[in-house]
Amino acid sequence: MSAADVIVGLSGGVDSSVAALLLQRSGTTIAGLFMQNWEEDERNGPCRADADRKDAVAICARLGIALHARNFASEYWDQVFARFLDEYRRGRTPNPDVLCNREIKFSLFLDHAHALGAAKIATGHYARVDEVDGRFRLRRALDAGKDQTYFLHALGQGALASTLFPLGELQKSQVRRLAQEAGFATHDKKDSTGICFIGERDFRQFLSGYLPAQPGPMRTPDGVAVGEHPGVFYFTLGQRSGLGIGGRRGSEGEPWYVVGKDVADNVLYVAQGNANDWLQSHVLDAGELTWIAGAAPAARFRCTAMTRYRQPDQACLVEIDGDRCRVRFDEAQRAVTPGQSVVFYDGDVCLGGGVIERSDAPFGGLQPLPRAAEPAHA
């Protein structure tokens, strides 16, 4: 059998299935590759990869293409999951999907595809790539509700030059319809949500198997005790669920939200109200910067940014300092969370991003800066 021109990463889901379908219909010679990035054990329940693999096998059989399989679990543990645990130990909230894309799906997978003789890989991500003046650009998908460039911002020129995103021009509804018309059993398969290796399991229970935590006090910012938490690792800024303090304290009975974490003293800080001032910030510092074009647009530039997935564009000023930057937003941002990604855009073009280190929220670790000191619109 001759080598395929493109190896499609088949996850067993509807998106990758239709990506393969579209490429085959375009006349491209393709094969599939199923990646197993996580190995379950009895403690963590049954392995979801078995069912996904069977779906991938069925798709390849229907398309009449070969299916390769690779186990990247060891590399995933070292390059993604170990970092995930380290970040939680520090009291931060990591984003493993960004690391998985950079280190596994668009690095190891790409290397294996080249070893199989393919020139390119393809995935079911909702994103677009084009080339302007010899440089590749990462652009948002036409389906704004499914766009995944936020999770792809750490890819470089090499990865983008060798990657196809067949779904970038489609709406999710079109993708499901194409799958149904093709007779794919995946056409109504539920989309995976949350962190891939946790799946539908309780997050706190999963994390406790790797990061045993100690109960500690839950306090308001002014030091009033309002309850006890099971471990600061298990909470993130802006979180409402799982606090177990309901309408206690406060005459208006507004819900409580996590506004700060003190890992050293094992204290969780909470305040009432979704828009309370303790969660608001105008400035953040980020590190581990990566740029799609290979370098930042300028030492100081205006753009829009997202500090979480599916957030509306936020106007800001970015100031570069080596592999770090300071971002000044025109409007206050809620629950800017260390460990998460800040991702920069120029219209529908993703410029790159970095890992949030701190903000000027009261518990953010960055000394609050007077906005008049350097206007964001400069």
Rank of each mutant, 00 (worst) to 15 (best):
G231W: 03
D313S: 10
G91I: 05
R204N: 12
A66E: 11
G117R: 07
S251E: 13
C100V: 06
E87M: 12
K54Y: 03
T93G: 06
N44D: 13
Q180V: 00
P46Q: 08
W256M: 06
K146V: 00
A295W: 03
G347S: 10
Q214Y: 02
A275L: 15
R53I: 04
P255S: 12
R326P: 03
D277L: 14
Y345T: 05
K54R: 14
L317M: 08
E75R: 12
Q36N: 15
G117V: 02
Q171L: 14
W278Y: 13
V267D: 05
C100K: 07
I245A: 09
E319N: 04
F184A: 09
L110H: 01
Y126D: 09
A275S: 14
Q79H: 11
C60Y: 04
A271W: 01
N276K: 09
W291Q: 14
E103A: 13
W278E: 09
A315W: 05
R334Q: 15
V14L: 08
A3T: 05
V283Q: 09
G13F: 00
A115E: 15
D265I: 00
D97N: 11
D323K: 12
R300N: 13
V57T: 09
R83Y: 13
R83W: 13
R135S: 13
I198A: 09
L152V: 09
F34R: 08
R89V: 05
N44G: 14
K190E: 15
R128E: 11
A82G: 02
V263K: 06
V226N: 01
D323T: 11
Q79K: 15
G253S: 06
C60P: 03
A378F: 06
N274Y: 13
P312K: 10
P212E: 13
Q148W: 08
V57A: 13
P297W: 07
G253M: 09
V259G: 05
G12F: 01
V336T: 14
F197H: 05
